[in-house]
Amino acid sequence: MFLLAAGLIGFYVAWRYVWQLRLGLMAKAVLTMAVLIVAEHQWLVSQFAGTMASPESPRWLIIGLGVGYGALILLACFLLIKDVLGGVLYLVSRPVGKRLLAGRRLPHFMAVSALALGAWGTSQAVRVPDVRKFELSVAGLASEFDGYRIVHLTDLHISRLLHRPWVDAVVDEANALNPDLILISGDLVDGTPQTRRNDVPPLGRLSARDGVYAVAGNHEYYAAFSQWIGTFRELGITVLENEHTLIRAGAGELVIAGVPDLVGPRHGQIGPDVVKALVGRPQGAPVILMDHRPGNARNNRAQGVDLQLSGHTHGGHIRGFDLLVARFNAGFVSGLYDVDGMSLYVSNGAGLWPGFPQRIGRPSEITEITLRRRS
């Protein structure tokens, strides 16, 4: 489905832009082929280097294709808006509609703008994320946990694109916050432990007073899941799979729970079970749940979760596209939501999938959440 949609986008741009250019047949054919290669580059790269989830081509090539793919998607959107508007105007005034539909200058401006925005979007995708801070009141929070600081990381997507220097910088940013707890809600890596052996060691430097906990995202299952879980644990990261742990401070208790991603059963692994994750928890203690995807928030709330930390959406990548991404995630895509009295925080993520390295209006983030007692 993904490849079909990408192909249709490529054909549309070729039809509405490339074949409207004043060029010879051969030049148009070559440009059309280039457009289609960019449109389907994830599949093409996977045939020669890595997989669609983890392209193992040179970083400069991933960046170049990311710029081109972003520009292609944006140009398709611009052209579609022009064509729809031109069609509507044509019904009102044929001359005006024809001028918009057949005009040659505007598509050139759109193409240049799309390329510039694609380059900007890729540059924002590969930068070290800024820290986003906010306070959150939690019902039933003991006084000992008032002011408790959690650093939330998600969607690191460590890869050939976001490689060791970037990982080192993210770890330094997180540690500089001197948090009480670090929680990572999935999609730490792309690729196998062998291909990422030089990139993941900095995760072992993550440091928080009460430890570092994580859950698996969907990308962990695409390559050597069991090996990755073992690797994370060797790095000092406790992976929660339908289980919880207790953080104690004086007489106060805080439940930290985690569930695996729902693609687990497709890869011979367990799926998310929030009921099992919370079996035996002390009644009255606030529950913080890591669930990679935000879509199950209402069910999680029904089981007694007070705060859910998620990622997966990357904030929608591009402002405007987030409206579409939200439709596939129960309406949740970026930021803080109230779900039947539960707080759901969907982070834009620190990184993203190298197959679509674009961020425009949806910046990456490292999140610091300070817990406050709710009166």
Rank of each mutant, 00 (worst) to 15 (best):
P286N: 12
M1E: 01
A102E: 15
F145G: 03
L72R: 06
L177P: 03
L161S: 04
I237L: 13
F225W: 12
T154V: 10
D322A: 13
Q124I: 02
S364Q: 12
V88H: 01
N242L: 11
I288R: 10
G268I: 08
S46G: 11
V171N: 08
K276D: 06
A169P: 00
G86V: 01
L74T: 01
A139F: 02
S310F: 08
V339C: 08
E173Q: 11
V325D: 10
R209H: 13
D340S: 12
W353S: 12
V13L: 13
L262A: 15
F232M: 15
G121T: 14
D168G: 08
Y69H: 15
G315S: 07
I247P: 00
R374N: 11
E40H: 05
M33A: 15
L89Q: 02
W19L: 12
W166T: 05
A224S: 13
P58F: 14
P286V: 15
A302S: 15
F2C: 05
V275P: 00
M290Q: 07
D340P: 00
G68E: 06
R149Q: 13
R164H: 06
P282G: 09
W19N: 15
P286L: 14
A169F: 05
A214D: 02
L206Q: 02
S159H: 04
L177R: 12
Y345F: 14
E173A: 13
L206R: 03
L188I: 15
K276C: 02
V112R: 06
D83H: 09
S93G: 03
G335H: 01
L72D: 00
A350W: 02
M1W: 01
L115S: 11
A216P: 00
A14K: 03
G236P: 01
G341Q: 10
G86L: 05
A214I: 04
D190R: 00
L101C: 07
M1V: 08
R281W: 04
T313F: 09
G121H: 12
S207Y: 00
R104D: 07
G335I: 01
A249V: 03
A297E: 04
L8A: 12
P129T: 06
L115C: 09
L79Y: 01
Q303M: 15
P357L: 05
G264M: 09
P129F: 07
Q20T: 14
I184K: 09
R196F: 00
W60V: 13
G204E: 05
L80I: 05
H108C: 07
L8V: 14
P95N: 02
R266L: 10
N175D: 02
E40F: 07
P286M: 12
G230W: 04
A142E: 03
R293L: 11
Q308E: 12
F356R: 04
A116I: 11
G252M: 03
L25Y: 09
Y213G: 04
V339S: 07
H163F: 10
A249S: 08
W120H: 12
N175W: 02
N299R: 14
R59V: 07
F332E: 00
G121D: 09
G66Q: 11
G204Y: 07
L162H: 14
Q283P: 00
E40K: 01
G304E: 05
W19E: 08
L181H: 06
G66K: 08
E56W: 01
R327E: 11
E234K: 14
R209I: 15
